[in-house]
């Protein structure tokens, strides 16, 4: 099922400049998308694109990390690294989705949360923490898809969900392989070894039971991948919509509760 790339080749593929990010999936999967801006607290984070639209006729809320294409756009979107106001915008729209009983789709692809003085001043840690705790209680189905690099806490802040999906070449890790190698072995050139050791590929996470589905990429165009992904999301949303709210929230709790259960 999985292609022959090494872990670090997958990391590079996940980061690749021409790999489609959240915006691509919105354009190709969501009809009549209307972008909704701002966190109502501080500002509007370009690294998170969010709004409402239809998934084959079903109204949905979509929250996506986006790094942009041109250099100007990338600067504006901070290379896809969300700031606290991005996570707060995401939470605002999730609560709105809850109010209108709309399923939520999150697209994850970022090297991590914005790392900077201003982000710390505005509570980067608190913003992520708030999403983790609040998403556990959002009374609407949440499907999260890792489409690129799932970089640590900044990715997980959109990753508390009922169903987790990864694209075959996406990665999801507690730390970047470079960061891991430089901390442990004082040598970021050992990133390929760290990538192997971290077990961060879609196949690894599927085997761990942390993601429920892996969408194959090999020999498929981006549009074909998108269409396979859409089918998977639709099926999952339908399944989750059939549940009572208690069943939905218990399922979400237990999905994470069982990870790393100890004797």
């Amino acid at each position: 099922m999985y292609n022959e790339k090494s872990s670090y080749e997958k990391v590079k593929a996940a980061r690749s400049n021409d790999r489609p990010m959240g915006g691509f999936y919105i354009r190709n999967m969501i009809d009549d998308f209307i972008e909704l801006h701002g966190d109502r607290r501080f500002g509007d984070d370009g690294a998170i694109v969010s709004g409402v639209g239809y998934l084959d006729g079903i109204p949905v809320t979509v929250i996506a990390m986006e790094r942009g294409d041109s250099i100007e756009e990338r600067m504006r979107r901070n290379f896809g690294c969300p700031s606290p106001e991005g996570y707060r915008k995401a939470l605002r729209l999730m609560k709105q989705a809850e109010k209108f009983s709309r399923p939520i789709i999150c697209f994850i692809g970022s090297s991590g949360a914005n790392c900077g003085i201003d982000a710390e001043k505005r509570g980067q840690g608190e913003a992520i923490a708030e999403n983790l705790v609040e998403m556990m209680g959002i009374k609407a189905p949440i499907v999260s898809v890792v489409v690129g690099e799932g970089g640590s806490g900044g990715a997980l802040a959109l990753g508390v969900c009922d169903t987790a999906i990864m694209l075959e070449d996406a990665v999801y890790s507690v730390i970047s392989p470079e960061g891991c190698a430089s901390i442990l072995w004082k040598d970021s050139a050992k990133a390929p070894e760290a990538a192997d050791a971290l077990k961060l590929t879609a196949g690894d996470l599927y085997n761990f039971g942390i993601v429920e589905y892996v969408i194959e990429e090999k020999d498929r165009t981006a549009e074909e991948i998108c269409s396979a992904l859409k089918k998977c999301i639709k099926k999952e949303i339908a399944k989750k919509q059939a549940l009572t709210i208690d069943e939905l929230l218990d399922g979400r709790y237990n999905k994470f509760r069982k990870i790393g259960n100890c004797e």
Binding site: V133, G153, L156, I183, F256, R257
Partner: peptide
């Protein structure tokens, strides 16, 4: 922070504990 030697399992503990904090708060 999270313990990198346990990879993605460590990251997921953040969500796991958050779930229990949520229920305690509720």
């Amino acid at each position: 922070g999270a313990r990198m030697q346990e990879g993605i399992y460590s990251l997921m503990q953040m969500a796991k504990v958050s779930g229990a904090v949520h229920r305690h708060s509720e």
